[in-house]
Amino acid sequence: MDLISGLAARYCIRQDARGFIELWGLVLVLAGAATATRATWWRGTLACAILLTGALAAAIFWACAASAPASLGTVAANPYGRNLDAMICVSSHAVETIDEWISIVAAFVVAIGLIALGIFRFRELPARGFAFAAGAVLLLFAAANGGLLLVGLSWCHSSRLF
């Protein structure tokens, strides 16, 4: 790791420290829930969420660390061409993206849990109906947030609007 890459990595951690710490907390909560449960399907769901969260953290960190020197002035040494805009988009609103991701994962996990409770645990109609309705609302919330996240990133990536 050369001097600038090393400094850029530390710079990105400082810039988005809150977001990375929140993601670490989310990973631990999901891993704890996966360890505590016995249901294989539930473990699989949580493992997927952990993998996606890790991938998001890695993508944000890489985009920031790789684009930091170029975005600060060494444009002549930019090896990423047009992708540099996209990388700056991913890293410049990292904490907001991370907060949005946490709300998506939390809503999705709670929704799946509620639906599972409705199917396997609740026997009475009102309780079951409430679990399904709340699960559906949370799934809609997660989907809407996911859409907003993608629209925000696309908006920023668009060279016309950037």
Partner: peptide, 10 residues
């Protein structure tokens, strides 16, 4: 300049 920026911001 970049080294300075990277080691002084945040």
């Amino acid at each position: 300049t970049i080294v300075h920026d990277l080691s002084s911001r945040y």
